[in-house]
């Protein structure tokens, strides 16, 4: 014992003093992890949780001329509950997002299927190609649809030029359909990725087994591929439905009065109407709906995943 300890104290850094902090950090892995996460969490807390708490507080205030009456009341929530306009607006928002979501998923599914099963070389390039537009300016992509659908836009002027119509089609712009078309187009990439991932994960030998057991291509698709891709379909629906319900730009540029959604109404409360507490209330109501829908999606996902695995 004495022998060896003499040897070490001369040479190795094992005896080097270690600071208390370093020791504590070395001992606790969780502490190290939290320390690394803390700046990100701090910013997200400042940027999300704190504002959200203030928003909740403000939703319990009321407007008083140009300032606020800070006595807490649920008057705004009662208004949202009682006045049919709010309910109608929420329903319309969900309806528009819902149709856009279904359209996007249905249209993207074959594409994702094609890349997952029939593209063998340069898969990466295909995926990048399909998702690239998503990363570029949302505002400009919506603007592009305004150019296309406008009263004197691409479609109307094109059809007139070809002599197929006399008068411009006025229903194209400022309608629910305009909003739905634009949303479906703008969010396609968001649907493609989860669909592709779930299809790509399917073990090809399962399909061969189904064929071997006598299924033709159609039966095989509905009995094997489709059920196994269910998690992807659910994820894609979720990823489109939730953000589009609160969309502002598309209905603002293309919706007109007919295609206005809850997001426009919220903006209005903070802008022209200048009723911030009401705007806060509507935001909270939207959040609560989103949370409820998210829970439903979560539940369905669990069920679907349990079936798949």
């Amino acid at each position: 014992m004495t022998e060896t300890s003499v040897q070490t104290s001369a040479a190795e850094p094992a005896a080097k003093p270690v600071s208390r902090l370093e020791r504590l950090l070395y001992r606790s892995e969780a502490l190290r992890g939290y320390l690394l996460m803390s700046p990100t969490l701090l910013i997200m807390t400042i940027g999300i949780i704190v504002p959200f708490l203030i928003l909740v507080t403000m939703s319990l205030w009321t407007r008083d001329g140009f300032s606020f009456d800070a006595t807490l009341t649920i008057a705004n929530y009662l208004r949202v509950w009682n006045e049919p306009i709010f309910g109608a607006l929420l329903r319309r928002s969900f309806w528009i997002s819902g149709v856009a979501t279904v359209a996007t998923v249905v249209l993207c599914y074959p594409m994702a299927y094609y890349v997952a099963f029939h593209v063998h070389r340069n898969k990466m390039m295909w995926i990048i190609l399909m998702t690239l537009p998503f990363w570029t300016s949302y505002l400009l992509r919506v603007f592009a649809w305004k150019v296309i659908l406008g009263y004197e836009g691409v479609i109307n002027s094109g059809l007139q030029g070809l002599g197929m119509i006399e008068e411009p089609l006025s229903f194209l712009l400022y309608s629910k359909s305009a909003v739905i078309i634009t949303l479906a187009h703008a969010w396609a990439a968001f649907a493609i990725l989860p669909l592709y991932v779930s299809l790509e994960k399917i073990d090809k030998s399962l399909l061969e087994a189904a064929t071997d057991l006598g299924d033709g291509p159609v039966a095989r698709f509905w009995r094997i591929t489709f059920p196994l891709s269910m998690p992807g379909i659910i994820a894609a629906s979720f990823l489109i439905f939730i953000p589009t319900t609160g969309d502002y730009i598309t209905p603002a540029l293309l919706g007109g009065p007919d295609g206005a959604m809850i997001g426009n109404f919220i903006q209005l409360q903070f802008g022209a109407v200048n009723n911030w507490p009401m705007g806060a209330t509507l935001s909270i109501v939207l959040m609560l709906w989103i949370a409820a829908i998210a829970l439903v999606f979560l539940f369905i996902t669990r069920q679907a995943e349990r079936r798949v695995s």
Binding site: G47, I48, P51, L55, I242, P243, G246, I266, S283, L286
Partner: peptide, 16 residues
């Protein structure tokens, strides 16, 4: 923030 509509964050930050 990947999923929740940006307008909610925008409004909340504005209020804060």
């Amino acid at each position: 923030p990947l999923v929740i509509p940006g307008i909610i964050f925008g409004v909340a930050l504005l209020v804060l």
